[in-house]
């Protein structure tokens, strides 16, 4: 039963990724639509990471007791200043681990 579920899940994830690049699908994108879609990367990726930072156990958490918020703030500064993926990840992860540790003391 679990095997069947996994198989059907695979069909769904592949379909959502593949459907709109299938050539025979009767979809044509005009210039306006293409412009609109050019904003999809910042929009979707942001809608993924921001809730991870601000929502803890279903509750909005805007306080210095939220290690996600502290670490994300420093990571944003690091990303804006350095534009380096590695440095941003390093700064973010170190601050996250440290602030989590300090907050549980």
């Amino acid at each position: 039963m679990t095997l069947l579920t996994i198989l059907l899940m695979a069909v769904i994830t592949f379909t959502t990724r593949y459907l709109f690049i299938h050539p025979r699908l009767p979809v044509r994108l005009g210039a306006k639509m293409a412009k609109l879609l050019s904003f999809s990367a910042p929009a979707v990726l942001t809608a993924i990471w921001v809730p991870i930072i601000f929502i803890q156990q279903g509750q909005l958490s805007i306080s210095l007791h939220n290690p996600y918020l502290i670490a994300a703030t420093l990571a944003i500064v690091a990303a804006a200043k350095s534009k380096s993926i590695y440095l941003t990840m390093f700064v973010g992860l170190i601050t996250f681990v440290l602030s989590r540790y300090i907050l549980t003391l």
């Binding site: 990367a41 910042p42 990726l45 942001t46 993924i48 990471w49 991870i52 930072i53 996600y68 670490a71 994300a72 990571a75 944003i76 990303a79 804006a80 380096s84 993926i85 941003t88 990840m89 973010g92 992860l93 996250f96």
Partner: peptide
Amino acid sequence: FAIAVTFIALVI
């Protein structure tokens, strides 16, 4: 958090 910080690094 590892996911979030990666996307911060990609988006900002």
